[in-house]
Amino acid sequence: MRAIDEIDRKIIAAVQNDGRITTQDLAQKVGLSPSPCARRVRLLEEDGVIKGYTAVIDQKKVGLPISAFASIKLERQREEDLDRFGKAVARWPEVVDCYLMTGRQDYLMRIVVRDLEAYERFLKDKLTRLDNVASIETSFALGQVKRSDVLPLS
Score class of each variant (00 low, 15 high):
D115P: 00
D115H: 02
L116V: 09
L116R: 13
L116E: 10
L116I: 09
L116F: 14
L116G: 06
E117W: 05
E117K: 15
E117R: 15
E117M: 10
A118G: 09
A118M: 13
A118K: 10
A118P: 05
Y119E: 07
Y119D: 08
Y119I: 14
Y119Q: 10
Y119L: 10
Y119A: 05
E120Y: 11
E120D: 14
E120T: 07
E120G: 02
E120A: 06
E120V: 05
R121Q: 11
R121H: 14
F122G: 05
F122L: 12
F122I: 15
L123I: 06
L123D: 12
L123E: 11
L123F: 14
K124I: 07
K124V: 13
K124Q: 15
K124P: 11
D125H: 11
D125M: 05
D125E: 15
K126L: 03
K126M: 04
K126I: 02
K126D: 08
K126C: 05
L127K: 03
L127I: 04
L127A: 03
L127W: 03
L127N: 03
L127S: 04
L127Y: 05
T128S: 13
T128N: 09
T128P: 00
T128A: 08
T128Y: 08
T128D: 00
R129P: 01
R129T: 11
R129D: 01
R129Q: 11
R129H: 02
R129C: 04
L130Y: 01
L130W: 00
L130A: 00
L130S: 01
L130P: 00
D131L: 11
D131N: 11
N132S: 03
V133M: 13
V133C: 08
V133P: 04
V133N: 09
A134H: 14
A134C: 06
A134F: 11
S135K: 13
S135L: 04
I136N: 00
I136V: 15
I136E: 01
I136Y: 07
I136P: 03
E137S: 09
E137L: 12
T138W: 08
T138D: 09
T138V: 07
T138A: 04
T138F: 03
T138M: 02
S139G: 09
S139Y: 05
S139I: 14
F140P: 12
F140A: 00
F140I: 12
A141K: 05
L142G: 03
L142Y: 05
L142I: 09
G143S: 13
G143P: 00
G143Q: 10
Q144K: 12
Q144Y: 00
Q144E: 15
Q144N: 08
Q144V: 13
V145Y: 13
V145Q: 06
V145E: 06
K146M: 04
K146S: 00
K146N: 03
K146V: 14
K146P: 03
R147Y: 10
R147I: 09
